[in-house]
Design a protein around this nucleic acid. Structure first.
Lengths: 232, 232
DNA sequence: CTATATTTTTACCATCTGGTAAAAAAACTG
DNA sequence: CAGTTTTTTTACCAGATGGTAAAAATATAG
């Protein structure tokens, strides 16, 4: 029902698909056989998972997209879920370190928040397919690994909470806000980017981040609207 | 008549097949055999889709969850995708009307935004499985219906933009913000709720909505942090 | 009660699923 | 070159998949 043409002209990065096994290396010019490796499997799979979902993507789909057979995959990966696990590790490894550095720096909370938001937006937008999968397919992780991911996600989120709390403690941020709720709000704003951001759009990542931060810091209301009876 | 199966009894949950149909309406308490209907199919399917994903949920899974056979489903629905289509219609029908009424009311923009956010949060949280599916499985819609959904989603989002624009025009909201970006931010905050909100949690929907709106309206920064050299 | 329309069943089907076994081919070694 | 390791192939598998045909059970009339 999916794709069953004898020829497969639809692959995103082609020319590896038609050159099947019985190809000898041409003298001199290496045809760049895109050496099958965990990394390219994971990248390709992430693209497909992001597009069609983990459950709706078969190992054959992934193999086809790479121009190899399904079994070739099994030399590099243990099973389908391992691919998913590697996607989760990729994303977390990208995301955690820089945020930790920001939080542990000597910057003031306001600047920390700004940088953390920019970092999060950058992760969300730039590693897009993997991140899409990250947020969507968590239910397909099983066993202890699933729990590990949940813990690391919570730790990530707790870094944001820390920034908010520090800001409240230093009276940079207003008291009365719950750091957890604010964190969820901010992370949600950023996450949602992956649903609509197009690199060709009207605003750059930087500009969007700035607007988000301006809103979160100063709010939407004009001073007049805030204190309608006494504008000083 | 039932046990002519040469194979071992592999059905996950049987016993519903042995006492089919034979049910009497108890006095007063209707035992409600859950008459199989499009509505209950859609509800059950939404739960499963939300849990395991559209692609990873089979029609047998849905039938099992309802205690009927897969083919019984086919009397009520055309195919798997139709179930998904009905989920999308359910969510949109719930969401559109109330928002339209808020936007077209005579309230001031600030109150409109407050109510729109509360409405959106309520939809997101209360129709949860269907909404989860709504945001996750759009890629599995095909044909003209897929386009219809995209259009209605955009229209929904444009209502929010309208509120922001009106607020800017009336100088309730600061100029300089892009209404689309702000809308995406606000919708993202609300959407993200469905990932973490638990009805048993520390805050009620109302309280969370209030914090979100307080943040969006007035910002996080204290007056001192906003104007560090001249606090008046 | 019989006739009709609604609802669900048993019995299929062709194709695909994740996964395995064994071996052939290529790529590195010495 | 031969020997070894890395990589990919052909050939399978048992079970599940979305979907269909035909008939049986049930409910609703008249």
């Amino acid at each position: 029902m999916k794709q069953d043409q004898p020829k497969a002209p639809l692959s995103t990065d082609d020319q590896s698909s038609s050159r099947r096994g019985k190809k000898r290396a041409g003298a001199g010019e290496e045809l760049k056989r895109t050496r099958l490796t965990q990394k390219v499997i994971v990248e390709t799979a992430a693209g497909l998972f992001a597009e069609r979902g983990f459950g709706a993507t078969s190992l054959n789909d992934i193999a086809d997209a790479l121009g190899v057979t399904k079994v070739a995959l099994y030399y590099h990966i243990k099973n389908k879920e391992e691919i998913l696990r590697l996607i989760y590790l990729t994303v977390l490894n990208m995301a955690e370190e820089p945020l930790r550095r920001i939080v542990e720096s000597e910057l003031d909370p306001r600047e920390k928040l700004r940088q953390a938001v920019m970092h999060h937006i950058s992760i969300t937008v730039n590693a897009s397919p993997a991140v899409t999968v990250f947020y969507r397919e968590q239910a397909h992780l099983t066993g202890p690994f699933a729990r590990e991911i949940v813990l690391r996600e919570k730790a990530y989120q707790r870094y944001f909470e820390q920034i908010i709390q520090e800001g409240i403690a230093r009276q940079t941020f207003k008291a009365g806000f719950d750091s957890q709720v604010i964190t969820f709000g901010v992370l949600g704003m950023c996450y949602w980017l992956s649903h609509w951001y197009k690199p060709t759009g009207r605003y750059s990542q930087q500009q969007i981040a700035d607007m988000f931060i301006d809103m979160v810091e100063g709010g939407l209301l004009t001073p007049a609207a805030l204190a309608p009876f006494a504008q000083t």
